[in-house]
Structures are given as structure tokens and as C-alpha cells.
């Protein structure tokens, strides 16, 4: 049985790979998923810019992507991944599939967070002559901020777990290390360490996210 020290470089590399995968995924989820969620909300039932066609199209695309089991999505997206990053293995490649899954996931959470802003507050803004843009920036987003931060936390935690699934097809990261060494080579110690590190990551994200959400929540 080898000691932790022997595996330390591997663990360190795997942790960084996981952070890279999840980091890229979260940035893209935030940059693309947020506007998609806003679009779903604004064009949805009772929205300020109701459009059945637009809402229908976006909701359809989001639902299609969300109905793929993640492991299938990984395989289906291999051609796209090759096109974008030139390879289908490694953390950068995995980040493509992870992002494609995370964008609609986060978009739905954004839509729900905005829907939870009391209708009366929007009525008041309209009554005082606010435009859709003003309502978006001065009412909806700040009022939904605690919920948006919680959504971001949930997404990060979920995709730390998904990144381990991506490890199954050679993405690198802690999940990959756990499977290759821990499972295939019966190095239980490595597996335990990988799981522990994932636990620490999840815990850190959860605590930080919860703290931020509470800080902005004035209700």
C-alpha cells in the first residue's frame, strides 16, 4: 500500500483539473445561462415581454438538452468538442459537455428565481413609470439576488459531481483519478482521498454560497 505522499502530485493535478473544468463551466453557465433564464422569464406566462413563440423555442431547446442523461451527452458531443478544443479527452474537452449541460440547468434556476420576485413589486415599478430595462436591473435582478446566488451554489455543487462522471470517459480530474487508480487498480486509499477532496470542494462552495446569499438577503 502506497502512502498519500506517493499520490500527492496526482491528487494535486487532479484537483486542479476538477477546478478548471468546474470553473470554466460555471463562468459559461453564468454568462450564457443568465441571459437565457432572463429570456425564459420575460417571454414566459405573465412576463413583461410575453412571446409564446420565443418562449416556446427557448424552452424547447432547454428541455431537450436537460433530458439527456449526462453520460450520453458526453458521447453525443464528442464531435463538437473536437471542433472546439481539438480533442475529446482531458479537462478542457470535458468542460465543453459540462457547460452544455450547465447552461440550461442554470437558466431554469434563474427563471425560477425571477418568478419568485413578488408580482406587486413589479406592479409598483410599472406604476412609477419604469421601463422593462429599468425593472430588470433595478428590481428583478437585485430582488432575486439571494435566490440567484443559491442557484449558482446548487449548480456548482451539481457540476462538481458531474465532472466526476466526465472522468469516466477520460476527462481527468478527481473522478477520473478515483476510477482509474481507486477502482480499476484497487487502490482504495486513492479513491478515499479523491472522495474526501470532492467533499471539501463541495463543502467550500456550499458554505461560501450560503454566506453570500445570506449577506445580500435583507428580507
Amino acid at each position: 500500500m502506497q502512502t498519500l505522499l506517493d499520490f500527492w502530485p496526482d491528487l494535486e493535478k487532479a484537483t486542479l483539473e476538477t477546478l478548471l473544468m468546474v470553473g470554466v463551466t460555471m463562468v459559461l453557465a453564468l454568462l450564457i445561462g443568465t441571459p437565457v433564464g432572463l429570456l425564459l422569464y420575460l417571454t414566459g406566462p405573465g412576463g413583461l415581454r410575453r412571446s409564446r413563440l420565443m418562449h416556446g423555442l427557448v424552452a424547447y431547446a432547454v428541455n431537450v438538452l436537460r433530458s439527456f442523461p449526462f453520460i450520453i451527452l458526453l458521447v453525443v458531443l464528442i464531435p463538437l468538442t473536437r471542433l472546439l478544443v481539438g480533442t475529446s479527452i482531458g479537462p478542457k474537452a470535458a468542460a465543453v459537455s459540462l457547460s452544455v449541460a450547465a447552461i440550461p440547468f442554470f437558466a431554469r434556476l434563474v427563471e425560477q428565481s425571477l418568478r419568485d420576485v413578488p408580482k406587486g413589486v413589479i406592479d409598483a415599478a410599472l406604476a412609477f413609470g419604469a421601463s422593462t430595462r429599468q425593472i430588470l436591473w433595478q428590481v428583478l435582478i437585485p430582488e432575486a439576488m439571494p435566490a440567484l446566488l443559491s442557484s449558482l451554489t446548487v449548480t456548482a455543487v451539481s457540476f462538481i459531481a458531474y465532472s466526476a462522471v466526465a472522468g469516466a470517459i477520460g476527462a481527468g480530474g478527481l473522478g477520473d483519478l478515483a476510477i482509474r487508480y481507486g477502482y480499476y487498480r484497487f487502490e482504495t486509499g486513492v479513491m478515499v482521498w479523491c472522495v474526501l477532496l470532492m467533499f471539501v470542494l463541495v463543502q467550500a462552495v456550499q458554505v461560501a454560497g450560503g454566506w453570500l446569499a445570506r449577506r445580500v438577503d435583507k428580507r
Binding site: 413578488p118 406587486g120 413589486v121 409598483a124 406604476a127 413609470g129 437585485p142 430582488e143 435583507k218
Partner: peptide, 19 residues
């Protein structure tokens, strides 16, 4: 929108911004 500024409105649930 401009004309609405000439009309104030108050509500049962106050409808203030919580943040």
C-alpha cells in the same frame, strides 16, 4: 411611462424593494 409619473400609487402589500 412618462405620464405615469404624474400618478402615485400605494398597495395593500406595500410592494417595497426588500433589498
Amino acid at each position: 411611462r412618462h405620464a405615469r409619473r404624474r400618478i402615485g400609487m400605494i398597495f395593500q402589500q406595500f410592494n417595497l424593494l426588500s433589498h
